[in-house]
């Protein structure tokens, strides 16, 4: 029973990781909380649903969802934040304008879906259950875990092993010095937002498949958890977001399994406060995460 719950917890953690990695990546590079991230996540699920509903295969839906959410995320950056950054008011102004962008996206989705809960046709994802060592694992769970692991590894490779990743980290570290080294920050921002949106879109499809329920507000709880996760992990820290996703996914799954229902969020957020009392900058956060070095 415990082993089964740990397994379920790992799958949930993977989805949280996909959602919150993009969230923390954007915060890390611009000190902006993109509160439209939940709506971008939802858009991914919707795009996959409508692709399948129109008769397309699921893999095509998955790819279209990733591309569409990535592009939407880039659009949000250009429309909501680029202009604000020039005024130097992006930290608070950005929160408001991204709430606005999230509302616009959700409302469009509400209109498109006629406020219905959308469900993938039966057998969109083959229902196959594997049993071993007394555990039950569905093919969907394996796919979710596999997709999460692959995407996290690809992200890690991009950020820590490539020239692109070095440019992203250079801009994150010191935008001023990065510009003097020939980096165009706006280009790096667009690329970063694309990756963040694509990861959220992938998470949206996985969640849509797992619960077989897609609606225009499905991003809201994830935005809330994503917010808590990146604070717990340390704002802007990629390893921190991974660790915190694991903690959140596990705690959530285990409390649901072993404690009276309804206590889950209470316990998760109480734990968050307790951890922040001991580590105010999060598990792997830096003390100066709130400051912009080398800007203005």
């Amino acid at each position: 029973m415990l082993a089964q719950q740990i397994l379920n917890g790992l799958v949930v953690s993977g989805v949280y990781a996909l959602f919150s990695l993009g969230f923390t990546l954007v915060f890390g590079i611009q000190r902006i909380l993109n509160l439209a991230h939940g709506a971008i996540f939802m858009t991914g699920a919707m795009v996959a649903y409508y692709t399948v509903a129109a008769g397309g295969p699921l893999w095509l839906g998955f790819i279209l969802a990733i591309v569409a959410s990535g592009l939407l995320s880039v659009l949000v950056e250009i429309v909501c934040f680029r202009r604000l950054r020039r005024t130097g008011d992006e930290e608070f102004g950005g929160i408001i304008s991204s709430i606005g962008a999230g509302l616009v996206i959700s409302t469009i989705a509400q209109q498109v879906s006629s406020t219905q809960i959308l469900r993938f046709p039966f057998d969109t994802f083959p229902v196959v259950i594997f049993r071993f060592w007394g555990l039950r694992v569905s093919m969907l769970q394996l796919f979710m875990a596999g997709a999460a692991i692959v995407l996290v590894l690809v992200l890690g490779y991009l950020i820590y092993r490539t020239g692109f990743g070095r440019r992203v980290r250079a801009v994150t570290d010191n935008e001023h010095a990065a510009m003097l080294m020939g980096i165009n920050p706006n280009l790096v921002y667009s690329q970063t937002y694309f990756i963040a949106g694509a990861l959220a879109g992938a998470a949206g499809v996985l969640v849509g498949l797992a619960f077989n329920s897609i609606n225009f507000v499905m991003g809201e709880p994830y935005l809330m958890f994503g917010f808590a996760i990146i604070i717990l992990g340390g704002l802007g820290s990629i390893p921190g977001a991974l660790l915190a996703s694991l903690v959140f996914g596990m705690v959530q799954t285990l409390t649901i399994a072993y404690l009276p229902s309804g206590l889950t969020s209470t316990i998760i957020f109480a734990a968050l406060f307790l951890i922040l009392l001991v580590r105010p900058h999060g598990l792997l956060g830096k003390e100066d995460a709130g400051n912009l070095r080398g800007r203005r």
């Binding site: 070095r166 570290d173 010191n174 010095a177 003097l180 070095r293």
Partner: peptide
């Protein structure tokens, strides 16, 4: 630039 602006985390 002035002030030794290294990319400190790299």
């Amino acid at each position: 630039p002035e002030g030794r602006q290294v990319f400190a985390e790299m």
